[in-house]
Computed example of a mutant assay.
Amino acid sequence: MASAEGGLASLSHPPQETSREALQRELDDAIIRTAGSHRRDDALSVVHISPSDHSRVQSSILTSSIVSRTGLGALDRLPVELLLQALQHMDMQALFNLRRVNLRARQMIDSLKEYRAVVSHGLTAYCALLRMGLAAHVTLLDFYRVLCSQDCAFCGKFGGFVFLPSWIRCCFECIEEDPETRMVTVAEVRRVFRLSRAEVGRQRVCQTMPGLYRRRLYSTEKSYQRRRLRLLPWFPAMREFGDRLETKGVRARHWHRWDPAHNFMASCELPYYDSQIQAVEYGISCAGCEARTVEQDPGQASRPADVPWDRLFSRDNFLKHFKICRQAQKLWESSPEAALEAIIKRDVHHE
């Protein structure tokens, strides 16, 4: 488990802080480094793209190899404001294709604050959408809206991930546990509902990416998926074709087979972007709660759903949690950085 410092590396400090505010933020940063952690293993258990892969696609996403100075044809007849609004409502696949037309197209798209935020902080999710055939279902504004949200749409906790087929922010637990994130193979859906190819074509089918995926939520077991699978969300198909289960013989024949690993193959990490202070958060777990859990049951092989350290916090909520978590406070008090708190209290007292 990695230190929380790595998860906060890209946080930027708000401008024009007073000396007291700057000292308090420095103290908060020190507390997070000492008593918080960022669970990198979770991010590596879903769709993951290595930095080296990012470097190979940046030429098409962040720059353009086409240097033509021609215009955009009929699009140039639109007022600039209207053209920019149209670009914001385009899907991510269309934007990707349009940027490859010429330099003028690249400059127009790159001028959008939403696009700059997406490629700066959500590049893994963007690449996953493109490679899995889902980019045509997510507009730039859709992407930006979810990037700037921080709560899991299912349980309300901090959500450091996104469920790609429906483009919904979620937490790691809800990837497996919420019914809306259940993924099944196309072959299985066709078998259960007796779908035609045209009916399958109306569903949001995705092609999985090779990689190492978690088998179950509360297990450390992973499996390497070499071949690409065709998956689709179960519940949209159930809502549309569920009535067929009642009219085709014994219902037990239509029980569907579900592999929890498929849910993780359709999700990836997505940090929360605070557009006000232009900072990103990946979520912080409590090292104190984790230490207490290990002390209570060091041989525990699985984690119950209510284990406190399983929860991810936003920066502000972690600092609130720290005030009531005695184990986290002990970690802080035993840290060399705890002396910083005494300095701040002394400076505040002298103001």
Score class of each variant (00 low, 15 high):
residue 101 V to K: 05
residue 246 E to K: 11
residue 65 S to T: 13
residue 262 H to V: 01
residue 42 D to H: 15
residue 42 D to W: 15
residue 64 S to Q: 02
residue 202 R to Y: 01
residue 129 L to S: 10
residue 200 V to Q: 02
residue 288 G to E: 02
residue 255 W to S: 13
residue 328 A to G: 13
residue 328 A to E: 04
residue 2 A to E: 05
residue 82 L to H: 08
residue 182 R to P: 00
residue 199 E to D: 05
residue 239 R to V: 12
residue 307 V to E: 13
residue 324 I to P: 01
residue 309 W to E: 10
residue 205 V to I: 14
residue 313 F to P: 00
residue 111 S to V: 05
residue 220 T to V: 09
residue 333 E to I: 08
residue 221 E to P: 00
residue 53 D to A: 11
residue 265 M to D: 03
residue 159 G to L: 05
residue 76 D to N: 13
residue 209 M to Y: 06
residue 118 V to Y: 00
residue 114 E to M: 06
residue 220 T to N: 08
residue 164 L to K: 09
residue 191 R to N: 01
residue 23 L to G: 04
residue 66 I to K: 15
residue 340 L to A: 07
residue 94 A to Y: 03
residue 191 R to T: 03
residue 125 A to F: 04
residue 160 G to H: 02
residue 59 S to W: 05
residue 228 R to V: 11
residue 329 Q to V: 05
residue 177 E to D: 09
residue 335 S to L: 07
residue 223 S to P: 00
residue 337 E to I: 01
residue 187 A to E: 13
residue 156 G to W: 04
residue 67 V to W: 03
residue 231 L to T: 09
residue 263 N to Q: 14
residue 215 R to K: 15
residue 55 S to L: 07
residue 70 T to R: 14
residue 57 V to E: 11
residue 225 Q to M: 06
residue 242 G to N: 11
residue 233 P to A: 01
residue 36 G to S: 11
residue 29 D to I: 10
residue 110 D to L: 07
residue 191 R to C: 02
residue 292 R to M: 08
residue 99 R to E: 04
residue 227 R to I: 03
residue 86 A to I: 15
residue 291 A to K: 06
residue 327 Q to R: 15
residue 110 D to A: 10
residue 130 L to S: 07
residue 225 Q to E: 03
residue 338 A to K: 11
residue 251 R to Y: 10
residue 303 R to T: 06
residue 124 T to A: 11
residue 321 H to F: 09
residue 178 D to R: 13
residue 337 E to P: 00
residue 132 M to E: 14
residue 230 R to N: 10
residue 236 P to I: 00
residue 32 I to V: 15
residue 63 T to L: 06
residue 335 S to N: 07
residue 90 M to V: 10
residue 32 I to H: 03
residue 168 I to A: 13
residue 20 R to V: 04
residue 296 Q to P: 00
residue 64 S to Y: 04
residue 28 D to P: 00
residue 268 C to I: 07
residue 208 T to H: 14
residue 12 S to Q: 13
residue 67 V to H: 06
residue 324 I to M: 02
residue 129 L to P: 15
residue 180 E to F: 13
residue 289 C to Y: 04
residue 347 D to H: 09
residue 30 A to Q: 06
residue 40 R to E: 10
residue 66 I to Y: 06
residue 25 R to F: 02
residue 188 E to F: 01
residue 39 R to Q: 08
residue 167 W to F: 15
residue 95 L to Q: 09
residue 345 K to C: 09
residue 279 A to Y: 01
residue 143 F to A: 10
residue 343 I to H: 12
residue 2 A to W: 01
residue 72 L to E: 09
residue 117 A to W: 01
residue 337 E to M: 13
residue 170 C to A: 07
residue 56 R to E: 07
residue 222 K to W: 02
residue 139 T to F: 10
residue 308 P to H: 05
residue 169 R to Q: 08
residue 290 E to W: 00
residue 280 V to I: 12
residue 220 T to A: 12
residue 48 H to I: 01
residue 281 E to P: 08
residue 302 S to R: 07
residue 26 E to V: 00
residue 268 C to R: 03
residue 203 Q to E: 10
residue 276 Q to D: 13
residue 347 D to A: 14
residue 207 Q to E: 10
residue 253 R to T: 11
residue 215 R to F: 02
residue 252 A to Y: 11
residue 7 G to Q: 11
residue 211 G to T: 08
residue 293 T to W: 15
residue 100 R to H: 11
residue 218 Y to C: 04
residue 322 F to L: 06
residue 246 E to H: 12
residue 40 R to P: 03
